[in-house]
Amino acid sequence: MRVMDSDDIVEIIVRHIRDVVPELADHPIGRDDAMADLGVDSIERGEIVVATLEDLGLDIPLVQLHGPRNIGELADLLHDKRAA
């Protein structure tokens, strides 16, 4: 079985974005997109991050996930936290 990489985590994040904001179901979303620019509000961003953590089985303080400027950077950070 292949080890999960950052792109796999991007996929999980994008799935949750489409889940939380159905308006984005058919909108192309990639690593370089920032959720705020896609019209995802702060409450929805929180919900997406929490759901992604659940999928990854990560139990860490949310404040440790502050800082990434786009989906790719968030995925990289989550990937690092998972490896830690």
Binding site: S42, I43, R45, G46, V49, V50, P61, L62, V63, H66
Partner: peptide, 11 residues
């Protein structure tokens, strides 16, 4: 920072 505040509130 709205995101950081939200995360601290949830934690």
């Amino acid at each position: 920072d709205a995101d950081l505040s939200l995360m601290a509130y949830l934690d």
